[in-house]
Amino acid sequence: MSDSAHRATVAGPLPAPTTAQTATVVDPTPVPPRPVGLSALRVFPVALGTNAFGWTVDAAEAGRMLDAFRATGGDFLDTADSYADGRSESILGDWMHARRNRDSLVVATKVGRSSEHPGVGARAITAAVHDSLRRLRTDRIDLLYLHVDDPDVEFEETLLAVDELILGGAVREFAAAQHPGTRLIEARIASAQLGFTPMAAVQAPYSLVSRREYEQDLARIVRAQGLGFVPRLPLAGKFLTGRYRSRADLTPGDRRGALGRLLGRTGMQVLAAVDQVAAEIDAAPATVALAWLLSKPDVVAPVVSATAVDQVIDLTAAASVRLSRRQLTELDRASEPFA
Rank of each mutant, 00 (worst) to 15 (best):
A279K: 07
R220N: 06
W292R: 12
D275L: 00
V46S: 03
L290P: 01
A236L: 12
E330K: 09
A52W: 06
L146K: 08
Q311W: 08
A273P: 03
R64W: 00
D217Y: 04
P45M: 01
A284P: 07
V26N: 11
V312G: 15
I141R: 08
S88R: 13
Q178P: 05
V43W: 11
D3P: 10
A339I: 02
A68M: 09
P180V: 02
A177W: 09
F76D: 06
T138S: 13
A204Q: 14
P302G: 03
L136D: 15
L218Q: 11
T79Y: 05
S335M: 06
P234D: 13
G267K: 01
P15N: 12
A224E: 14
A334N: 06
A170M: 03
A286T: 03
A68W: 14
P45T: 02
T182M: 07
D27V: 04
F76K: 00
D27L: 04
P118V: 15
R333F: 03
E213G: 11
A283R: 15
P198H: 04
T329D: 13
P32K: 00
A190M: 10
L263D: 00
Q225Y: 10
R247E: 15
S39P: 04
V106H: 06
D81F: 08
D85I: 07
E156I: 10
A40H: 10
S320A: 13
T22D: 09
R211C: 05
I141G: 11
L66E: 00
L271S: 01
A11M: 15
A122T: 07
D78K: 04
V171H: 14
E156A: 08
A279E: 07
K110C: 07
P231K: 04
A80E: 12
E213Q: 11
A278I: 00
S4C: 11
A278E: 00
H97E: 14
H147R: 02
V111C: 10
T79H: 12
A289M: 02
Q311P: 01
T9D: 13
H147Q: 04
E280V: 14
L77F: 10
R113G: 03
G119W: 13
L136R: 15
R134W: 14
P180A: 01
E89L: 00
P285L: 08
V209Q: 00
G237V: 04
A317R: 09
A5I: 10
W292A: 04
A52V: 02
R255Q: 05
L331A: 01
V309C: 10
P15S: 12
G54R: 09
P198W: 07
T138L: 03
L14E: 14
A317Q: 05
A319W: 08
G74H: 05
S295D: 10
Q203E: 14
A177Q: 06
S90H: 09
Q178F: 09
F155C: 01
L165Q: 14
G74S: 07
L144Y: 05
G181R: 05
E215C: 07
T126E: 15
S115F: 12
L41T: 06
L259R: 01
A204H: 12
Y206L: 02
G93H: 09
R172K: 12
R325D: 07
A84K: 01
F53K: 05
V209Y: 00
L294A: 07
V209T: 11
S324F: 12
T109A: 05
R7F: 15
R123N: 13
L105K: 13
A127K: 15
D249A: 02
A23F: 06
M65D: 08
V162R: 12
D275W: 06
R265F: 00
G112Q: 09
G119D: 08
